[in-house]
């Protein structure tokens, strides 16, 4: 059963397995034949006309592909960090960065398998601007990726309709936050949760997919199209 939840043949089947999905189906039934159906469909198809780039898709599957894209980016980055280690890397740093690489690969492969046939293809990255031989550059980029990843998952939570997927995103985002704090401490001890990332209410950031995808685009040769992702 859980297998089906994660590797759906049809997105609608998948959605219907959850309590919310059942509610949604009820609504769709209710609305069939009313003017609302036409309006809903019209509202959706307007966005679908934009086919520029790799389309992440819509609904929960779109959000999972969005997460898959970010994990691909992070995994590729740390793989390169370990392959071409910066000058003066300490044994401790190498050990911790290797752990992070493995976590990101685990996340990437998990999403790939979870999405199955609905997964976007492997992405081409663009790390031309990153000097992997320099500690400062590598850690600054890592900080960007980790803080961005945390804000992406935090912002995507409300866009997810299936509680199982929300739970999975929650299991991953706290690990990304652990990474973010470590990387920040490696750059400057004590900056794990400073006021550049945590506000006066003690809250981390939450960013929309549009903001995150724009920030990630500079590190990707592949162009991502998030125009069908949910926005509320």
């Amino acid at each position: 059963m859980a297998d089906q939840i994660i590797v759906p043949k049809e997105q609608d089947d998948n959605v219907m397995l959850s309590p919310k999905g059942l509610q949604r189906r009820k609504f769709l039934t209710l609305f069939a034949g009313t003017a609302a159906t036409a309006a809903v469909i019209a509202g959706c198809s307007k966005d679908s006309n934009n086919n520029d780039g790799i389309n992440l898709g819509s609904g929960d599957i779109g959000i999972l592909n969005y997460a898959y894209a970010l994990e691909q980016l992070e995994a590729a980055f740390y793989t390169q960090v370990i392959m071409s280690q910066y000058a003066g890397i300490t044994a401790t740093e190498l050990s911790l960065l290797t752990d992070i690489r493995d976590h990101e690969i685990a996340h990437r492969e998990f999403f790939k398998n979870a999405l199955g046939a609905k997964a976007i293809p492997g992405l081409e990255v663009n790390f031309a601007a990153i000097d992997f031989s320099k500690r400062d550059t590598v850690l600054a980029t890592a900080k960007t990726f980790e803080d961005l990843g945390v804000s992406a998952y935090n912002g995507a939570g409300k866009l997810i309709t299936d509680p199982v997927y929300l739970g999975l995103a929650g299991k991953i985002v706290s690990v990304e936050a652990r990474h973010a704090a470590l990387i920040r401490d490696l750059i400057s001890n004590g900056s794990f949760a400073d006021n550049t990332v945590i506000d006066a209410n003690g809250l981390d950031k939450a960013n929309t997919p549009a903001t995150v995808l724009a920030a990630a685009s500079g590190f990707l040769k592949s162009k991502l199209n998030g125009s069908n992702l949910p926005t509320s």
């Binding site: 409300k158 706290s174 704090a181 794990f192 809250l203 981390d204 939450a206």
Partner: peptide, 24 residues
């Protein structure tokens, strides 16, 4: 918290701060 987007997002934003604390 899924029925209230504002509360859910705030809770998630606290959750990741706790994880940063744990890490440190």
């Amino acid at each position: 918290l899924m029925s209230n987007n504002d509360v859910l997002t705030a809770a998630l934003n606290i959750h990741s701060v706790e994880a940063r604390h744990a890490s440190h």
